[in-house]
Amino acid sequence: MISSLVTAFVVGGFICVIGQIFMDVFKLTPAHTLSTLVVLGSILDGFGLYEPLIDFAGAGATVPITSFGNSLTHGALAEAEKHGIIGVLTGMFEVTSSGISSAILFGVIGAFIFQKRKTTY
């Protein structure tokens, strides 16, 4: 239990450090940083390296945005394994899209409930 929490903290924190280095050292905007990380997660899954990381770190690997690229690639690959090259197109959102769907849903609910502040981001 406790060791899972510690590994989640360390691995999740480490992925955020990579993001911070992109932002500070390479002077990327947050949008560029996030896009790079998503591509990175997707490539890692192509080599079959992201699933072992999830097995090791749990939420430390599933909560950062890299897991978004991973799950898209994973769905595409799983479907391609079954149906060949067409599956690459159809399988992408198959495995998981809870991040997008919940962001849309809570975005609308948030817009409904909350009033505009000077800046919220």
């Binding site: 060791s3 590994t7 699933e51 072992p52 990381l53 097995d55 090791f56």
Partner: peptide
């Protein structure tokens, strides 16, 4: 074991 979990499958 914690560090063997990379090879879970």
């Amino acid at each position: 074991n914690r560090f063997a979990r990379f090879n879970k499958t």
